[in-house]
């Protein structure tokens, strides 16, 4: 935008004020409530950071595709019978490790169960563990990290040392000890354990980016113009510090789904009556030469899920950065 010289008369007098008022009125007359056009003109109603981001996201194919994949996964996680009419537990040992055949497009596993049905039913456990653990770790971690980074002092030290202690816990050993004493066959102990181990990583990233954002001049400027702590943190620091947290969270989501698989393989994660990609991948890994389809289908489903979440995170991060617009 070129610098243009503005005559002083335009600045000093009250005309500017009345002009602005007139424009404001015209705008409200033009746009009665609920009748706004779908694509808002630049003079439309005020948009915040999030609505601007949403405006961008809707036009981003990466976001649309990954969003659709995630919605699809969420639907089959809730209602697997919509696309899989079989029973994931029904075993026909005569068909053990057999390949695809009509009605059973993915073939059978070692115990003669339909792989397709199990992949569809397995989405529920993996998605639940992945999203809940990520949400828990991200919320807890970013909240604690942001507070520690913003206020500093002894709270910051306490948090950093606590995080160090959690970092010191070996994941597998901790999982074996912690989860073997719990007999529940639901996904929640696994989710809880992953949140417990996962939050320090998020907290550390969140703390770091809040400390960086806090030093920005605009935070100082907001303070000089009378913003309180809460407003500074929520409106000026958080949006500028959230991108690394989103990136870490999306990467962690894939890791957490894989961690659930690892723990399940060791017998400490989900217990066999539950259907999970992790359990099936572990079971199939021994037979990769004889019957690779048993491994490839659940592993493929896992990969697509993780990819969709990472793409989503990428798109959201870009949308939250107005400089990329």
């Amino acid at each position: 935008m070129p610098e243009s010289y503005v005559p002083k008369e335009a600045i000093t007098h009250g005309d500017g004020g009345t002009a602005a008022l007139a424009i404001g009125e015209a705008e409200s007359l033009e746009r009665p409530p609920g009748a706004g056009p779908p694509s808002a003109p630049p003079t439309g109603k005020p948009r915040g950071l999030w609505s601007d981001a949403w405006h961008d996201l809707r036009r981003n194919p990466v976001f649309v595709i990954s969003g659709l994949v995630i919605i699809f996964l969420a639907i089959i996680a809730i209602w697997p019978q919509l696309i899989a009419t079989g029973n994931p537990y029904r075993a026909d040992l005569a068909k053990a490790q057999a390949g695809a055949e009509p009605g059973h497009p993915f073939g059978f596993d070692t115990q003669g169960r339909d792989v397709y049905t199990r992949v569809v039913y397995g989405a529920r456990a993996s998605i639940t563990v992945g999203t809940c653990a990520t949400a828990g770790a991200a919320l807890l971690g970013s909240l604690l990290g942001a507070l520690a980074g913003f206020y500093g002092g002894w709270g910051d030290n306490l948090l950093s040392r606590t995080a160090d202690i959690f970092f010191g816990i070996p994941v597998i050993l901790g999982g074996l000890v912690f989860l073997s004493v719990i007999t529940s066959s639901t996904v929640w102990p696994v989710v809880g354990f992953i949140v417990l181990l996962g939050w320090p990583q998020v907290a550390r990233i969140a703390r770091g980016s809040v400390v960086t954002a806090k030093q920005n001049d605009y935070v100082q400027a907001a303070r000089a113009l009378g913003a309180g702590n809460r407003r500074m943190l929520l409106r000026h620091i958080a949006p500028n510090a959230i991108a690394p947290v989103i990136v870490v969270a999306t990467i962690a989501l894939g890791t957490y789904i894989a961690l659930e698989a690892t723990l399940s393989y060791l017998g400490a994660g989900l217990k066999p009556p539950t259907v999970s990609w992790g359990i099936d991948i572990s079971a199939a890994s021994t037979y990769i030469r004889n019957a690779p389809h048993m491994l490839l289908w659940p592993a493929g489903a896992l990969s697509i899920t993780v990819l969709a979440f990472i793409m989503l995170g990428d798109a959201v991060r870009d949308a939250l950065d107005p400089k990329l617009r």
Partner: peptide, 23 residues
């Protein structure tokens, strides 16, 4: 805090870094 902004205000050196880039 209530005095800041309302009764006394400050203008900073570098306006680019003094304005929040995401708002």
């Amino acid at each position: 805090r209530k005095v800041r902004g309302a009764k006394m205000a400050m203008i900073f050196q570098d306006a680019l870094s003094s304005l929040n880039p995401v708002l």
